[in-house]
């Protein structure tokens, strides 16, 4: 029993991280692996799977044939995503946290998605006042 506990303790201590993801991601999202070492800031989170786009916990749009439904690439300001992000920016501006940190979006995206889909979302986010991103990846 002591041996089992010791092994368990060593394993848990070895994998211990003070920066733990306190959120769950939909099982359909398969994140890419990377050698990145930076920690993420969980301010505003956009999750994109092959079928759905979430902003935080809320479903914002559906993805069909690689295109975000309701997001016209030529008129991104008319989309729900843009309006929600503007609201997020206004809310963040009122908070007391560091400006650089609050204007950062954590972008968790399925590795099989094409850049065409991702670009339409990051472009909209850029227009809404979030030009800086963090691409969430799994440690290699």
């Amino acid at each position: 029993m002591v041996d089992i506990f010791t092994f368990l303790l060593i394993f848990l201590l070895a994998s211990f991280s003070d920066h733990v993801a306190r959120f769950s991601i939909d099982g359909s999202v398969s994140l890419p692996k990377s050698a990145a070492k930076s920690d993420f800031k969980d301010n505003i989170r956009i999750v994109v799977s092959e079928n759905t786009v979430w902003l935080g916990q809320d479903v914002i749009a559906q993805v069909k044939d690689g295109a975000v439904v309701g997001l016209d690439v030529n008129k991104p300001k008319s989309s729900v995503l843009y309006h929600k992000l503007v609201q997020c920016r206004q809310k963040a501006e009122q908070s007391t946290t560091d400006t650089k940190e609050k204007n950062l979006i954590l972008f968790l995206c399925d590795k099989r998605l094409s850049f065409k889909t991702i670009n339409s979302i990051i472009k909209t986010a850029g227009l809404a006042g979030f030009p800086n991103f963090q691409f969430g990846v799994l440690k290699k």
Binding site: V2, F5, T6, L8, L9, L12, L13, S15, F16, S17, V20, A21, I25, L31, S34, A36, K37, S38, D39, F40, K41, L106, I122, K123, A125, G126, P131, N132, F133, Q134, F135, G136, V137, L138, K139
Partner: peptide
Amino acid sequence: FLVIVLLLLISFSFFNLKAINTSV
């Protein structure tokens, strides 16, 4: 041991998330 293991299990992350900073 039991207390430490429980504490570590609570804070255990099943996916080790890291980030790449980028911008448009």
